[in-house]
Design a protein around this nucleic acid. Sequence first.
DNA 1: CTGTTAGCGCCTTCAA
DNA 2: TTGAAGGCGCTAACAG
Lengths: 339, 339
Amino acid sequence: MPTIKEVADLAGVSVGTVSHVVSGAVPVSEPLRLKVQEAIRELDYHPNHVARSLKTSRTRTLGIIVPDMTISFYPLVIRGAETAAWKQGYSLIAVNTMDGAERQKELLSLLRSQRVEGILVVVAAAPVPVLQITRLIEAGIPVVCLDRIPEKLPADSVSVEDVSAAEMGTDHLIEMGYRRIAIVTGPLSLTNENRRLQGYEQSLRRAGIAVDPELMWHGNVRPEDVAALCQQKIRSLAIRPDAILCTNGPTALGCLRALRDCGLSTPEDIGFVTFDELTVDDLFQPAITTIVQPAYEIGFEAATILFERIQGKSGEEILAPRTIRLPASLKVRESSRRL
Amino acid sequence: MPTIKEVADLAGVSVGTVSHVVSGAVPVSEPLRLKVQEAIRELDYHPNHVARSLKTSRTRTLGIIVPDMTISFYPLVIRGAETAAWKQGYSLIAVNTMDGAERQKELLSLLRSQRVEGILVVVAAAPVPVLQITRLIEAGIPVVCLDRIPEKLPADSVSVEDVSAAEMGTDHLIEMGYRRIAIVTGPLSLTNENRRLQGYEQSLRRAGIAVDPELMWHGNVRPEDVAALCQQKIRSLAIRPDAILCTNGPTALGCLRALRDCGLSTPEDIGFVTFDELTVDDLFQPAITTIVQPAYEIGFEAATILFERIQGKSGEEILAPRTIRLPASLKVRESSRRL
DNA sequence: CTGTTAGCGCCTTCAA
DNA sequence: TTGAAGGCGCTAACAG
């Protein structure tokens, strides 16, 4: 791999001159510039970003940590972040925690060693000590939480407007005439799940419907577990709910499996609304009414905020953490049609 | 961000000693080791991988280039590669080309500047000059092509056993009693598409069914375009095909939309088989019979080969390119059931 | 076992 | 406008 020195030798100039034409920051006379460019082409020279980063202490790299990028929501988030980063000449290194606390710890440590200039993180579902993240921020590496927001973490965060999104879904079910509406959540250790639960409750109260603890089923993000939970609940209940609201995709999949296994279909036997798209195309049945999060925008917005922190880092006092909440939209399909 | 020197000072030892306890390569006496570890904890020291890489000229980083990781097949591939990399202490930097030739060029250049030790690449659908990749390999950066295999590129490659996979799908349709089987492909500039087409033809011939050019529809990987193409074909044909085989996911989505828009459903009106899973869960209808590629294994295997190249690089003659073809499996569902 | 030191490739003053 | 030189933080000899 040729170095800047070899380019300089071939072009018959000093390394400084080569550096100047590469960066474009300092003007170089036409003839020298051409000679240098010719040498670069000839040697197929690619500036060593590693050396550049060491010198400038800027890696032009961001990290993004997600639970599992095979969950369709996350690739969109990553793409949004990638686009924002690309515009700034940054690249992105994306890693999966598989919702493990230990793994998340290792990955944060790794990214820190890689000297990424900022980190976007969807915290793992496993209860995670926020101390590590706090230290990261104190060490001057900005962190933006997205999607899932941990409690008591003084970091910027970008996610969906959880409460109103859940209200939107619940209101819709109520409008469609459903009254006995169950909710299936993921782990309540995640703030979002709590907020969505809260939106659901508010919506019911506003409509004068009693909030029934029997209809609040708290699971996790593993479809198998949720399926078992829902089956047990459905079978044990004296009166079945007439509709179900799920607060995230994996949970919804589990719940739908349970319905199928109980011989119930939607919307015929039960109304159904969930957060997050379950299929890539709406030609599939059952067509599920969905509370769609602006995944791409969440990633894009989060990266944008991260850049503000990165750029503003030199100077000014530390600004208070920003909390961005983007609105969800409701995609009404068959599953919430009252029959 | 503390440096090794600060750790050394705090622990009252030399930087060499700190380096030794961090790497574990050279034994250090118990008392000193403890002091160093204490200093590391105290300062929250994270070794600077950038400096390390510059010194050792090993970044312990791999690049992976995919067309678009929001296509569900690719996250699995990436995860497979990530797992293999993780085991070797490597990390992965994943980027999307959006099937653009220019973008791919920039990304290869970027990864090269980042000094990744090897690159996994799913080449862009846009016709791409392979020269850049050849140069990369000549420069000593191993490249493994996966999924899509460009012609005439002396690189390792890992993909599915295209011909027999297509045969498997076609044979299945034939067995189910279908005779007038159409095929919808992506761009024929991709070798895989050609091979799958070839498998389809072989299968028909072996069954004594004439290969009808009218039933070979060549599109691209944009569902909208494919939908338009299929609609036009279906409407203009005197005799409709009784089944369709699609050679990839996006193409299949387009084709299914066309069927819907023509008022046809599967399997009632037409049999349907496609490469690649279209939904995350088989509780959705229509349940499509699918030729499933071992996506995770493709990524894992490709990374494994890459490591062999990376490790074997020092010494030996250059080995001939390896061509790995993994078998697909057939997931039979409703869409191919003859009614 | 421990300390010292010379670069890895590049950028960035600083002089000329 | 061009060239020379000092590190960035770390590892890997090598010397003690």
